[in-house]
Simulated scan of single mutants.
Amino acid sequence: MTYMFEYPHYVKVGLPERVERLYEDYSVYSYGEGKHANNLRHGKYFGIPVLFIPGNAGSHEQVRSLASVALRKTIDDETRFHFDFFTVDFSGEYSAIYGGTLEKQSSYLQHCIEGILSLYKGENRPTSVVLVGHSMV
């Protein structure tokens, strides 16, 4: 894990009720730090969506290393774009042992991608999500 520059915030992203019931042990969050998390709390997303997928028995909180560095780079370099980081909580499941778990997680990820894209409004909204997998085996 890397150093965070501000206090981390994990803001739960709501998916359709039927999806929430079907995958009650799973959740998806958006990640932000300090004042940069305010837009997330108000459902305002303007960046390039990135979905962090933790691996076998991993934690959704592992996104903070990548997201914190990316946030600092966009601020320090004054880029014209930024990334909106999202992360999935699979409740620490052991996904490397049983293929059925991977199948369930993959199905949930499809719903997450649809839900993430639905957060963006306007004519320049994204049509895809960058996926980052961590320690899948």
Rank of each mutant, 00 (worst) to 15 (best):
A67S: 08
V19F: 04
I97C: 13
G122E: 04
S107F: 02
G43I: 07
F85W: 09
H60Y: 15
R125P: 08
L119G: 04
F90L: 01
D89N: 10
M136E: 11
R72Q: 12
V11W: 12
Q110T: 09
F90I: 00
K12G: 11
E123A: 13
C112I: 02
Y10E: 10
T127Q: 10
G92A: 04
V130D: 04
A57D: 06
Y7H: 12
T2C: 08
Y45E: 00
P49D: 01
A67I: 01
S65I: 02
G122C: 04
E103T: 11
H42W: 12
Y29N: 09
I113S: 00
N39A: 15
P126K: 00
K121G: 14
V130F: 06
A37F: 10
L40F: 12
N124S: 15
S95F: 01
L51N: 00
R80A: 12
L131M: 05
K104P: 02
E93A: 09
N56I: 06
V63P: 00
R18A: 12
N38Y: 12
E24C: 14
Y26L: 03
A70F: 07
A37K: 09
G92N: 03
V130R: 05
S118T: 05
H42P: 11
V28K: 05
R21W: 11
V130N: 05
G34V: 08
V130T: 10
R18F: 13
P126L: 03
A37M: 11
N56L: 07
Y108W: 02
G32T: 07
G43F: 06
E78D: 07
G32Q: 07
T101C: 08
T101N: 11
K12M: 14
L66F: 05
E93Q: 11
V137K: 13
A67D: 00
G100D: 09
E33W: 04
S107K: 06
I113L: 01
G122T: 05
G115R: 03
R41P: 13
Y23T: 05
S135H: 10
S68C: 01
L15N: 01
L40H: 15
F83K: 05
H60S: 11
L119N: 02
F83P: 02
P8G: 06
L66R: 02
V137E: 15
G47M: 01
K73Y: 15
L40G: 11
D25Q: 12
G14R: 12
S65V: 03
V137N: 13
V13I: 14
L51P: 00
D89R: 03
D77W: 05
E17F: 12
T127F: 04
E123S: 14
T74W: 00
S65L: 03
R18D: 15
P49G: 04
L117F: 03
M4C: 11
V132C: 08
S59D: 07
S128V: 04
